[in-house]
């Protein structure tokens, strides 16, 4: 049945690169999915033979269609197998799924991109998109926070972006030892130090839920409107089609209505325990 979106497509692993101690980036051949370009913020379902399937956000450049890039942290049975794949191994792929970052709604505005830990991976396609279409956006500021200097994802790339005049990069770590010359402190604490125009800013936030909550508070305190703050939520996803019910967050199916949601939509629910 051609319209059965539950059936994966086999695709080959082309390259694998270690990013951090337990984090790897996989480049997959794009297969048929390559004919359907993805949007920054969308995800694929990756299947390991006989083990299971997990949602992994796309972390590559949507402007090139030959490969699909995913950054995976080895934390469970499926992601451990994903992280251990070698070139020419085959995985099952479904996708892309979901609603991505507000790349169109953000046009003409300043962009404040706030990433925490591995949350930089789903935001990287948005950054690629902005740099490809730089004229469409105002100021672009990237705030990145992670655990320690050893946990900085895409460190080389961040350094390159930092050298560009058209994007401001601020990195901070939660703690460090003496040889780290950079900032130390949690990423939300960078927000009040910024000189920016909150009324003309669209904020995109991705990271652990607690980090996003603290960041949203800082953004609101700074005067950014609720409808201009976007988050990428994480919930259990099985089908990615809004049918299996697992990913519900209030009236939202995170897989289909998200994963990127405006804060306005989840306000009041985000701080609710066990919702």
């Amino acid at each position: 049945m051609a319209d059965d979106l539950m059936v994966p497509e086999p695709v080959r692993v082309l390259r694998r690169q270690q990013e951090l101690a337990t984090t790897w980036t996989l480049e997959l051949e794009s297969g048929q999915a390559g004919h359907r370009p993805f949007l920054p913020g969308q995800f694929n379902m990756l299947y390991i033979f006989g083990v299971g399937e997990v949602p992994i956000s796309l972390s590559g450049d949507a402007g090139q269609t030959e490969t699909l890039v995913h950054t995976v942290r080895a934390v469970g049975p499926v992601s451990n197998k994903l992280a251990a794949l070698k070139p020419m191994d085959t995985v099952g792929l479904r996708g892309p799924f979901g609603v991505g970052w507000p790349m169109t709604a953000g046009e003409g505005a300043d962009l404040l991109i706030v990433a925490g830990g591995l949350g930089l991976a789903p935001l990287r396609p948005a950054i690629y998109h902005v740099l490809r279409h730089r004229e469409r956006y105002g100021r672009v500021i990237l705030l990145y926070g992670t655990r320690s200097p050893d946990d900085i994802l895409y460190a080389g790339q961040l350094e390159e972006w930092n050298k560009r005049p058209d994007i401001e990069v601020h990195i901070t770590v939660d703690h460090a030892s003496g040889d780290w010359p950079g900032k130390i402190g949690v990423v939300p604490s960078l927000v009040p130090t910024l000189d920016f125009d909150p009324e003309d800013t669209v904020a995109m936030v991705c990271g652990p839920e607690i980090m996003m909550r603290f960041t949203v508070n800082a953004l609101r305190d700074a005067g950014v409107e609720d409808e201009s703050i976007y988050l990428s939520m994480e919930r259990n996803m099985k089908c990615a089609l809004g049918h299996c019910g697992h990913c519900q967050f209030g009236s939202t199916f995170v897989c289909k209505d998200g994963p990127v949601l405006s804060f306005e939509r989840v306000r009041g629910l985000l701080s609710l325990k066990e919702f």
Binding site: S79, G116, G145, H175, M211
Partner: peptide, 22 residues
């Protein structure tokens, strides 16, 4: 208070590896 909030977030070690697998 902002240092207190920052300390809370640091204690939570939000970027740390999860204790249980997916």
């Amino acid at each position: 208070t902002s240092r207190l909030h920052a300390t809370q977030m640091q204690i939570l070690d939000v970027y740390g590896a999860p204790e249980q697998p997916e």
